[in-house]
């Protein structure tokens, strides 16, 4: 892909509304170049969708934002990730601190093997919350649209819930501490359609208070919930698979009037 196209991929965004600015020129795992030339800004109180074929590095990019990739041996990258104007990978920055402000919801529902209440209270206790933990747990569960279903069994293990409920519990756990940004890595891929719809409604509800980055393999989901969309593709020309950002823009523009032919092909289902 030509470099001029890359420069066009990301338009300017008013820095006042910018919560995160992620410029990932190269992401390596050992000697393997996983992602290149991806510049994604994340705006306040919006849902930024990451779409693209599997292996395009959208999850890798997402996991770079809160330094979850630090846990993968051999990970390194060129570029920068800014969070409110500060360098997430800067000298002396503890990844633990970063992850406190940038919450994450994972592909597979992963509640801890403790009670529903303790699951949600986990982050509050971790952050030495001074207020009423019970109140916050209730608010978080209400925010995750789970309260009515579990209010009578808060002491039951989180693992006893259904898959959809577990995922909403994980969302409640993530929002209980009111992180500035919520990263969601294909949060609905393990859920049935009904549970998926509930989580989608929840995301739209949550963006009033939160800034969300959402990885999804489901284009319809992106059109339903994302305000802006980053389309990634994968370059397999040189014998290895390297993902890169093709186009970034308002969701309606990406889906209705894409600038790149590649985006158009993907949207219209000519490849996946």
């Amino acid at each position: 892909m030509s470099s001029t196209m890359q420069q066009q991929a990301t338009p300017d965004i008013q820095s006042a509304t910018l919560v995160m600015d992620c410029k990932l020129d190269k992401i390596f795992y050992g000697n393997f170049l996983a992602v290149r030339d991806s510049h994604v800004p994340i705006e306040k109180n919006k849902i930024t969708g990451f779409i693209g074929p599997s292996g395009c590095g959208k999850s890798t990019v997402l996991r770079s934002l809160n330094r979850m990739n630090d846990l993968v041996e051999g990970f390194r990258f060129d570029g920068y990730v800014q969070f409110l104007g500060q360098d997430v990978y800067g000298k002396g920055v503890d990844p633990v601190v970063v992850r406190r402000y940038i919450g994450m919801v994972f592909q597979q529902p992963n509640p801890f093997s403790m009670s529903i209440f303790d699951n949600v209270a986990f982050g509050l206790r971790l952050n030495r919350y001074k207020g009423d933990i019970g109140d916050r747990v209730k608010q978080a569960l209400q925010g995750a649209a789970l309260w009515d279903e579990v209010k009578d069994k808060l002491k039951v293990s989180g693992l006893a819930l259904s898959g959809g409920q577990q995922q909403r519990l994980c969302i409640a756990r993530a929002i209980a501490t009111q992180p500035q940004v919520l990263l969601m890595d294909e949060p609905c891929s393990a859920l049935d359609p009904i549970a998926t719809r509930r989580v989608e409604e929840l995301m739209v509800e949550l963006k009033k208070d939160y800034t969300i980055a959402l990885v999804t393999h489901n284009m319809q989901q992106a059109t339903r919930v994302a305000d802006t969309t980053a389309f990634f593709s994968v370059d397999i020309s040189e014998g290895s698979r390297t993902g890169y950002l093709v186009e970034f823009g308002p969701t309606y523009q990406i889906f209705e009037n894409p600038r790149e032919k590649l985006t158009k092909d993907y949207i219209s289902g000519q490849f996946s």
Partner: peptide, 14 residues
Amino acid sequence: MTYKIKRDAMEKPF
């Protein structure tokens, strides 16, 4: 792990 970071003037502590 080593990061090669093209940094702007961002020395503010986190």
